[in-house]
Simulated scan of single mutants.
Amino acid sequence: MPAPLQGPQKAAVLMLALGEAAAARMFGRMHEDEIRDVSIAMAQLGTVPAEVVEQVCEEFGRALGGPGNLVGSYESTERLLLKTLPAERVASIMEEIRGPAGRTMWDKLGNVNEVVLANYLKNEYPQTVAVVLTKVKADHAARVLSQLPEGFAMEVVMRMLRMENVQKEALEGVERTLKAEFMSNLARSTRRDAHEMMAEIFNSLDRQSEARIMAALEERNRESAERIRSLMFTFEDLKRLDAQGLQVLLRSVEKDKLALALKGAPEEMREMFFRNMTERAAKLLKDDIAALGPVRLKDVDEAQAAIVAAAKDLAAQGQIQLSEGKDDQLVE
Rank of each mutant, 00 (worst) to 15 (best):
R89Q: 08
D193E: 12
G19C: 09
A316W: 11
G173Q: 03
A211E: 12
T190A: 03
K312Y: 04
A291E: 13
R191G: 00
A225E: 03
A3N: 08
S189E: 13
Q44A: 14
S146T: 14
I320G: 01
N203E: 09
S204H: 09
L82T: 00
D287S: 05
E200L: 09
G46P: 11
E51L: 12
L241P: 01
E332I: 08
K137A: 09
E181I: 07
E210G: 06
R25N: 05
F235Y: 01
A309Q: 04
Q167P: 13
A194R: 12
L85D: 02
A211W: 11
F182W: 08
E155M: 10
T128P: 06
E196Q: 08
A243Q: 09
G61I: 11
A306W: 05
G7H: 05
H31A: 02
V116E: 00
E254C: 01
A87F: 10
Q244S: 13
Y74P: 05
Q304C: 03
G7N: 09
V253Q: 00
S76A: 14
E150P: 07
G293T: 09
V13C: 04
V38Q: 00
A211N: 14
E196F: 13
G151I: 02
I307A: 01
D237N: 02
L250P: 02
A63P: 12
P2C: 00
V129H: 08
E59N: 08
E302L: 12
L145P: 03
P126H: 06
V56E: 01
E75N: 14
A282E: 04
E58W: 11
T234A: 04
P4E: 10
L109S: 02
M15N: 00
A306M: 01
G110R: 00
E88M: 02
D299A: 04
V132L: 07
R227W: 11
L14F: 07
N113R: 15
A118M: 03
I35T: 07
A180W: 08
W106G: 01
A21C: 14
I93R: 05
K168Y: 14
V129R: 05
A310G: 05
R192Y: 05
R207T: 10
V248Q: 09
K83S: 13
L249S: 04
A130E: 04
L117D: 04
E268W: 15
S39T: 09
E150F: 10
R280K: 15
E268M: 15
A12K: 02
E58A: 15
S39Y: 06
R162T: 07
E324M: 15
Q247F: 03
R25Y: 13
R29A: 13
E169F: 03
Q208M: 13
L178T: 04
G110K: 01
D287P: 14
M277P: 13
M232K: 00
L205T: 07
S189C: 08
D301T: 04
V132Y: 06
T84P: 09
V253E: 00
V56I: 06
M15S: 03
A303M: 11
K137W: 04
E218V: 02
A101I: 07
V156I: 04
E75H: 09
K312L: 00
M1T: 13
K10E: 13
L18A: 14
A101H: 08
A118V: 03
A142N: 07
A17Y: 08
M42E: 03
E75G: 11
I40G: 14
H140E: 12
G68K: 12
E58V: 06
S209L: 13
K135M: 07
N123W: 14
R162D: 10
S76E: 13
D327R: 07
T177N: 12
L250R: 02
